[in-house]
Design a protein around this nucleic acid. Sequence first.
DNA 1: TAGACGTGGCA
DNA 2: TTGCCAAGTCT
Length: 346
Amino acid sequence: MQSTDLSDNHPFAADQFAALVIGWQQQQGRHDMPWQQAITPYKVLVSELMLQQTQVTTVIPYFERWLQRFPTIEALAEAEQDEVMTLWQGLGYYARARNLHKAAQAIAERGSFPDDLDSLQQIPGIGRYTAGAIMSFAYDAYGPIVDGNVRRLFCRLFALEGYAGQSKLEKQLWQLAEQLTPKQHNRRFAQGLLDLGATLCTARQPDCVRCPLQGDCKAYERQQVDQFPMAKPKKAKPSRQGHFLWVQQQGQLLLEQRPDKGIWSSLLTLPEVAAEHPLLQQAEPIGSFRHQFSHYQLDATIWQPRQQVQESPQHGWYASRQLADIALPAPIRKWIEQQLKHSTAD
DNA sequence: TAGACGTGGCA
DNA sequence: TTGCCAAGTCT
């Protein structure tokens, strides 16, 4: 096939581009992911929310458990939030779980699954990318997508300047996506874009030799593949202190429900108190851990208070056998389980 | 617009 | 050990 002219000052050979991506996906793309089997809009919704900023291998067991427990959107709509959070625990970005729950309720209330880009973006947790992905994967219909894979692929293919989040670049990317997305075979086309980004046009050590777009790639032509996309200027990650309480009573552990905003929203944790909380003056430090978030580092200290803890409606007592069935942040769960293992060992 | 929002894998 | 990265959205 002769080289397609995909430069940004000429009419795109959009149909040839689509044909390359679709043909490659059919031969070399991924076809075995669980959400690709017996596709329904609900499965696409669940998988897309789970896959936001999360790797495929991490999502797969969560997706399988989710579909087993909530086989339909109605089943999810009727569920309690506690159980929703418990199934999501460990996956991170917990607002996604609340949004998925709210989305199911909104769609159940609506009576039908939305099937156009505008309606989809009215649903909690569905932005421009996810709306396009649902159009493509659920309905095999026109739905442009720009995610991390497409951004990397297009930035290299067209040698686009700028970094993720810059409005000028994002506008270019979406314009390209709209122009290059075909009117047919959208499921395979969208999957092809993601598969190219995930398996060949990767962030580190891209496999240009096997890439069907090599002949059209400006970055490759210049031998500057590693220069695109441009790295976002990074800022120093701040460090924060956290103080958590370890309070046991008759074999039960005191936990508190976090608010629905902020870090670990809607999860249970060890009760957290401010550094200047009077309880800490008489408390004994019994442990610590460091945890890296994407935007800050948490240095946590766990204290055993000597005085009575003032309980609130957010507090509750939990036996160790209950811990498996409640939603705890990963580092808190890890610390608690370690602590209980030691205390029961002696 | 830039920051908040998690976690685990990998070099 | 550290930093980057992974099918973004919301404010």
